[in-house]
Design a protein around this nucleic acid. Structure first.
Lengths: 327, 327
DNA sequence: TATTGCCGTGGAAGCGCTTCCACGTGTGGG
DNA sequence: CCCACACGTGGAAGCGCTTCCACGGCAATA
């Protein structure tokens, strides 16, 4: 068992009988190196169990070797959300392809911890901000601009990637109308997330087209809120015949809340969600919803920051209606 | 608008009219500094928008400022699993308390990418390995030993934290027995995860105690597997009157598969899961299960590596039976 | 007034790595 | 046979930061 100190590149170079410069070239695979040198260094690396120091490497090469994901949100709940899990999974994949690490940051809303501190910019290859708010985005250090992308919100400040929840909502609500529903309530997302506005707008338009009043209650994308929202809606508008929630989690909660109220779904009230999460097809009745290609979106964002390409400011990914039993 | 290069500590020192050493002391808050110096440096920092470079800091101070979470698993699915999301949430919190970052790594089973490469040890304050396999654990660089903890598996190699799924399973299966079930099938976890062994053992013991045969099929903690497992069980042992799955996700899938087969739950077959995930109470019928204090476990593991305390090698957290409608 | 002690400070030495540059070598063409 | 040109190599200069150490100035003590 060797001493405490872990092996450095100098140790490797010495063991291999070459200079540190040569050892570095071999280890990184950059620059010329004779077969002989390559061999000896490789042997030494294996023998000493050498692992390059990420910090030193980042410092010397002044290049990013890390993809940071910052999740903005009011509570810890956001990280428990399957949505974030899918984003992280995807990011981890893209990062693995590029051989960069992923760092994860949870930024509370109205955070004293800003994205600036988070970044510690050297060694940061790119930053993907999930559900950014404008103030949060403004704390991104200047040096990083151009290596930042947003997902979950369409903003023009940085390249953004999001699902097209305008047409998605349109599709769902029209489906409800086409099955004879007219008194349709909507549970939105949290008010600090502007992405819901486009959806609400789409909903209003359809309601207007068929001469119905709008029934909007604020949500927060959680299942718990769905339960209370169901009660709220049925007490404010007892003749409601359909509920559309901008999140499957919430829709599932609505299903539960309605069940507790003794309301039959879809016989009495139809329920539809948005996202098409894995559980959507496991609920009873199975949830009608609209897809949300989270993986595609996250991959696009991760690639955008890592490749540093100057893309269109906002990209919307299409959402597709999935009709199951609940509506 | 200042030049491209972001401000360094030298810039701050110059602007404040002090030496770099003093500036460093003020910024880190370590070491003596006069009120005057503190003031001037603080002003300069604010003015220049200075952000310390994490890499350089880690390199110079040779101290860890990052908590790494490595998730071991066969497919990307593991990261989509709510379990991992909860672990990450918790880790992010603990890390935020300690003012360290979190990095996330997905390590495929039989990974060419080992935990060694992941670590790039400098700047790593600790490593929590989720669902470690012994080979994976062996790739952890020596320098890191003592700053590594495992969760999701009880291993003696490093401090480990896991739910006590032996007594948890015992509780669930005895509950099934107490409600008159005798022909109970079990869907296990993935075979590469040794943690399931203790659970299977507990199940076998109860079955033996009441003179029933064991009916075990291998699972993988996914809902999809639950659907196929239900079909498999009902065709192999048509008289089965209860199914216990070691994961709620799988149990939910079993519910779905049984429904497709026209089997009534719990009338014909009782179903129970393990984990008590959020969706457990949203399914119809609501799922009977046993708790899994993921947050507590993850917090304990994160604290253990960050505080570098020499705790007991294996800690099991108790699981509590939650009876709902499905069993 | 001379001596001891302490505190705030700046100089300088690295942390482990990448990369520029200059320096031999060995090859091909003139 | 000599010059040009590659190519592989080692020396050395940093990357931005922390921290050791020695130094000067001040107040407290003799």
């Amino acid at each position: 068992m060797r001493g405490q100190r872990s092996a450095t590149l100098d140790d490797v170079a010495r063991a291999a009988g070459v200079s540190r410069a040569t050892a570095s070239r071999v280890v990184t695979g950059q620059g010329p190196a004779s077969a002989r040198a390559r061999d000896r260094v490789a042997t030494a690396v294996a023998e000493l169990g050498y692992v390059p120091d990420a910090a030193a490497r980042a410092l010397a090469s002044r290049s990013g070797t890390r993809l940071a994901i910052a999740v903005i949100g009011r509570t810890a709940a956001v990280l428990g959300d399957p949505y974030v899990g899918r984003v992280l999974t995807t990011a981890a994949h893209i990062a693995a392809e590029r051989e960069v690490g992923v760092s994860l940051h949870w930024v509370p809303l109205n955070a004293p911890v800003t994205l600036a501190g988070l970044a510690g910019s050297r060694g940061l290859g790119g930053l993907v901000v999930v559900n950014p708010t404008r103030p949060a985005l403004e704390t991104v250090p200047r040096a990083l601009r151009g290596r930042v992308a947003a997902i979950g919100v369409g903003t023009r400040d940085v390249p953004s990637f999001d699902v097209d929840n305008r047409t998605g909502t349109d599709g769902v609500v029209r489906h409800l109308v086409s099955t004879g529903r007219r008194r349709i309530a909507m549970v939105t997302g949290p008010s600090w997330l502007p992405c819901g506005d486009r959806a609400v707008e789409a909903y209003r338009r359809v309601m207007q087209d068929c001469g119905s009043e709008t029934r909007v209650v604020a949500g927060d994308f959680t299942a718990a809120r769905g339960v209370t929202a169901a009660a709220e809606i049925m007490s404010r508008w007892p003749d409601t015949d359909a509920v559309f929630a901008l999140s499957d989690l919430t829709a599932l909660g609505v299903l539960d809340g309605l069940h507790a109220l003794g309301v039959q779904v879809p016989a009495d009230v139809a329920v539809a969600g948005f996202d098409d999460i894995a559980f959507a097809c496991l609920s009873r009745p199975a949830l009608t919803t609209s897809t949300h290609p989270v993986e595609e979106i996250a991959a696009a964002a991760a690639r955008a920051v890592l490749d540093h390409d100057g893309r269109d400011p906002v990209t919307f990914f299409p959402s597709r209606l999935v009709v199951r039993e609940s509506a």
